[in-house]
Design a protein around this nucleic acid. Sequence first.
DNA 1: TAGTGGTCTAGACCACGTG
DNA 2: ACGTGGTCTAGACCACTAT
Lengths: 262, 262
Amino acid sequence: MNSIHASLGNTTDGTECGPATGAPSPMFSPLYQQIKALITQSLESGEWKPGEMIPSEVELAARYKVSQGTVRKAIDELAAGNLLVRRQGKGTFVATHNEDRVQFRFLRLLPDQGELQPHESRLLEVRRLRAPAEIARQLELKPADPVVLVKRVLEFEAKPTVLDEIWLPGAMFRGLTLERLSEYKGPLYAMFETEFCTRMIRASEKIRAVAADAAVAALLGVAPGDPLLSVDRVSYTYGDRPVEVRRGWYVTAGYYYQNDLS
Amino acid sequence: MNSIHASLGNTTDGTECGPATGAPSPMFSPLYQQIKALITQSLESGEWKPGEMIPSEVELAARYKVSQGTVRKAIDELAAGNLLVRRQGKGTFVATHNEDRVQFRFLRLLPDQGELQPHESRLLEVRRLRAPAEIARQLELKPADPVVLVKRVLEFEAKPTVLDEIWLPGAMFRGLTLERLSEYKGPLYAMFETEFCTRMIRASEKIRAVAADAAVAALLGVAPGDPLLSVDRVSYTYGDRPVEVRRGWYVTAGYYYQNDLS
DNA sequence: TAGTGGTCTAGACCACGTG
DNA sequence: ACGTGGTCTAGACCACTAT
């Protein structure tokens, strides 16, 4: 009958970010799962921020009053899920989208030849409106809740290649404006993380081949009817809460979507 | 200075299948990696066949003269890579494509509504020929080496949905004929595994949107020019050796290609 | 009841990165 | 030299499955 001992060093010192919900958490499960949940809470509450180093394994073992091996197994799983990054000799760090190394975890478009060049993002519009039924459903909002709609085009080597319609919960992205977005360099998810305390953990995509309609064709510089890759993505943050719906159209002439099965 | 002790129970008793290559294997690396390599060898040589149970952790620990924890870590990684399947209370088993549970690991097409229905495979042709340059390159064969080409259509609910051109090394798939193929029920990879001792471990896909040409359109019952999902797959077996090239065209009306990012 | 994998511990030592 | 994560061990006990 294992359960975590009372409440200890779980110092959720209300730092800037998230609500530190403190969901009941699984009580009767393997110890390392409980530790995993506690660490996840600290990540979500912002006690340890993206890019920062978390306490060492021995420290955590002391804090939670378990053996180092148990903490290790918890961290192993979190690292496998890309929430943490281990670096031998240095420590364990909170994963972040602000790293060149891991830039393209969520954009799996590669050129037929050569390396992927840095791309240019051209903002078309940023609008606040009431969520259409389908978007509300996917974001788990009430119909007509406020949302932000961002439209943009990504250009690779000066060729428009990706058109994105990005839907975000309005409540969560209050200060998001076209100006603020255009100032920001680098991936969107990096900005969401640093400016809106919203870290994208995983995403699920539905991919289809579609014919370009007139509007999309014009924006991407292709002919109406040309085949495009349609990518419908829902992104999730801690606790599997959906926080972004993204509809993308990819021009796959000279580029392909890379996927590995195992 | 760790290395595996001399040669022990590594009884590669030349059973029916593979050549049991016995590549030198990594000598100075973590012990559990060496164990992992040894286990992989036994899998490749056919000592333990798909679906069978491998020796228990304590047995393996004794055989390799290491602790159970070390064997455990090796098995953990092999299970994570889908080479083995752990089943509590029963044992650890060699993964197989002959299981309903894991049928659609490599076919990620889902219907917009409802569950995926069992599909019908319609063989168009099976032909032996000399490998075109591009196929030879991808299969790491010499140009003009013999290959087998299989063409088929998959039908979902009586609607042709997937057209596949499958290229296989001729030497490896000697007895493969249209008759033999059409007798076989179930996934191709299950047949390859049981009949040709070739287990597909992982695959890499390049996905594009293309316009259907006349020939493909006719076979799939769509109009020429209609958008199709083009899926170029290379599948690998033990040791990352490529053993299949597959060019697929998917009709994504009513179906989508599902992908999860993390 | 016996055998399997699953969890947890405690401690020793190694490999890497830093000061 | 020190602190970090990484490896390896040995042993205890739990949970599940079969007989």
